[in-house]
């Protein structure tokens, strides 16, 4: 049997809009992935601790509060501090085009903005998981 890809879907920051995260979680489930859904208001520390315990392949974060420039890179930094390089980190939400290059530079592999078909996210994950 092919092993299922394990994905942590998390919402860092303080906004309470989890509809997008839930839609993604459901779409990944239907694509045969095991989704660990941790809900709202996660700190980067919680996200990293959860990624370690759940041994996930992917961390998918959704943010609509505007704090992405701070929170996304903090998660990558904390992962690296733990010596973790084999987790694919992706982000989504209302993120201005102008912010995307610096986020990618900070180690977020891809950013999915509103309107992205879920099939596109699924394809990206399947093609880019690191192990």
């Amino acid at each position: 049997m092919e092993r299922p890809i394990r994905v942590l879907v998390a919402k860092p920051g303080l906004d309470g809009h989890d509809r997008g995260a839930k839609v993604i979680a459901r779409a990944l489930r239907d694509a045969g992935m095991e989704v660990i859904y941790t809900g709202l208001r996660q700190t980067p520390e919680q996200i990293v601790a959860t990624s370690i315990q759940e041994d996930v392949d992917v961390v998918a974060m959704s943010i609509l509060s505007g704090a992405h420039n701070h929170l996304f890179p903090s998660v990558v930094k904390l992962l690296n501090k733990e010596g973790i390089e084999d987790i694919l980190v992706i982000g989504g939400g209302v993120i201005p085009e102008d912010d995307i290059p610096s986020l990618k530079e900070a180690g977020i592999a891809e950013i999915f903005t509103p309107g992205t078909p879920t099939t596109e996210t699924i394809r990206y994950i399947k093609e880019n998981v690191k192990r």
Partner: peptide, 26 residues
Amino acid sequence: FSGGSILGDRIRMQDLATDPGVFIRS
């Protein structure tokens, strides 16, 4: 059908995630 799942029990255990004396696995 898909072999996928949504593992959501951790939602109720938020504060335990960073406790060094706790290990949670879904």
